[in-house]
Write a protein that binds this DNA or RNA. Structure first.
Lengths: 342, 342
DNA sequence: CTTAAACACTAAAACCTTTTCAATATTCGT
DNA sequence: ACGAATATTGAAAAGGTTTTAGTGTTTAAG
């Protein structure tokens, strides 16, 4: 077991040609059952493992996918990555990871490493500082398929998997309306993200359908940092006619916004001011005052489907649709997680 | 830019040999400055990128590290992975990931994939169901170095990077003692983990130093699932002489334990019963009733150092120490995160 | 001016596999 | 039993790079 056996050795031991061994191992129809068995037995005996490096070199394929996500420590993305990993493994693909940390320069650097490694396909969730996607489109020119997921670009002619935030936002507005809210604020994300726009569009449509006013003072924007979210929340609260509910960009933003309320006001969360949000973070169930509802965006599913898509593209299969959109699900928290028996 | 240029083409264009080009690009001393420049210029002009697959094949090295973690969605591990990624990239190594989901069978399967991909080294945080590490030791036989981090095995003759949980636990006991606690419970983890034992040893030592009694009724064990943690908490509370403080295995366990208290008792958390813990989860700051202190185990640092270690081993450098132990830091939460201005 | 050393470069093998094309062996129909 | 068809195997090239073992040319020393 010191050195890995090669097909050459198998061939020599059995007195057959290298090509025969290769074919036998691949179940090529032109090889007789007899020799096929002999070869396979010998392969097992010698503990033969194909030299992937050689195969990749020979075939000019790496059987490797590249994945770029903004931040692995965000539970959303680690879930997505898990979906990607599972789907890739199921199709015998490897996965190379990179984190952009929301920096477009880092994004490009990772892309370069990936190119050197001759990835067969790429999965990307865009950094929030990425305004132009030319560096990705260049890959497609070289016949390396790219599929975006969750943080997808606005461009039309690209492959993507994402969550239907437009309709989800309408659902959220309806939920709030049913609970009696007539004055709802939207704590937006960075303008660059399509996700921000989708939420906005759905929000407006939701308000319209219920004949609520769409006042521009209802919007406030965060770049997703704590400081920025605090400021946005401050803006929202400083209006003369204070909203009774806030739709936050995601649970992290909601968390920061709620923290602001707790620290700097004496408003009671989810009583005086109600929070709803997106992402449905697993940790939400541990909070005493969580966002009441959150949109489940199925990161695992998005990752899985994006992966299947890119593999189909690699194999030049027909793609049913270039833009897959997954329905978001409005998840209301199970009743009163912190029921004290007092 | 359709087809990648090769050194062959560069050689042809410049009327030099292939070997000259190869050496020129590697700054080999035997190549004259003149030709070296010409080669490098031409390489740039043709947009030459070395074919890594060919190099890997030729050199029998993959420049790839394998990483196995139990669960990527746990913030601890995604931080560790970030540290690994950064260190690997800095040394021009790629990283292949796998999640064991705490299943030793999955662990072995991933290991197999990694072997086929001829990884140069492996980084592992053990699954909690892994009792024997033979499958890893087999790699070392094949001269593929393995470094364990955080969830390290008890075996002596292995390389590892971990946090000093023994002394951290003593620190925790001291902290609680200073706050007046004289009756402290330990909510342990699975017996299989060395981490469980280390905590236990430190806990006992801490109690001893303060002359507190080390009653076996002070221990309760969780397999890290919510149900199990609830049961463990139930045990702890059902004692006639109820402890005033609980040291939980980590913040996740603490969260579940606190959830139990909130749902099924009318004890006030951190007043009637105080929680302290390990991991220092980022989300801790958002909780109304967080574990008061938590041991920072520096996952990023652990990942980084483990990676540097495995790369040193690959390059057969002298290793200063086979077992790196990082000091844990007791992190007290910034005062009263939820100060209402009431 | 000769000889040895230093310098600048080259030819060719090796790494392992897949695959095309060709060759041999077997079977079949008649 | 003969040729044709089919089944089975083999030889060799190709893929891009590194590296060993040189070859030839210039420089320095004697």
């Amino acid at each position: 077991m010191d050195k890995q056996a090669t097909i050459k050795e198998i061939a020599k031991k059995l007195n057959v040609s290298i090509s025969t061994v290769s074919r036998a191992l691949h179940d090529h129809p032109s090889i007789g059952l007899r020799t096929k068995m002999r070869v396979k037995d010998m392969a097992k005996e010698l503990n033969y493992e194909p030299n992937l490096a050689a195969i990749q070199f020979k075939l000019g394929k790496s059987f490797t996918l590249g994945v770029i996500v903004p931040e692995l420590t965000e539970s959303f993305f680690s879930s997505a990555v898990t979906g990607i990993e599972d789907a890739a493994l199921a199709n015998n693909y490897n996965v190379l990871f990179g984190q952009s940390h929301d920096d477009v320069l880092k994004e490009k650097k990772i892309l370069n490493t990936f190119r050197n490694n001759r990835i067969d396909g790429l999965l990307v969730s865009l950094s929030k500082s990425t305004k132009v996607i030319d560096h990705f489109l260049e890959l497609t020119k070289n016949k390396i398929p790219v599929v975006f997921f969750d943080r997808v670009p606005k461009e039309e002619n690209v492959y993507s998997v994402s969550c239907d935030l437009y309709n989800s936002s309408i659902k959220i507005v309806n939920y709030l309306w049913d609970r009696g809210h007539r004055h709802i604020a939207l704590l937006k994300g960075p303008q660059a993200l399509t996700a921000t726009n989708e939420r906005m569009r759905g929000f407006m449509e939701g308000l319209n359908r219920k004949k609520m006013k769409t006042d521009p003072s209802l919007f406030s924007s965060s770049d997703l940092t704590k400081e920025s979210s605090w400021n946005a929340m401050k803006d929202i609260l400083s209006q003369k006619n204070r909203p009774t509910a806030v739709i936050a960009f995601n649970d992290y933003v909601a968390l920061d916004a709620m923290q602001y309320v707790k620290r700097f006001t004496n408003l009671k969360i989810n009583k005086d001011i109600c929070f709803v949000s997106y992402s449905n973070l697993p940790m939400r169930v541990y909070l005493d005052t969580p966002p009441l509802v959150s949109i489940e965006q199925f990161p695992y599913e998005q990752g899985r489907r994006a992966t299947e898509m890119v593999i189909d593209l690699i194999n030049k299969k027909e793609i049913a649709q270039t833009k897959v959109v997954i329905d978001g699900e409005l998840i209301e928290l199970e009743e009163i997680p912190q029921t004290h028996m007092v």
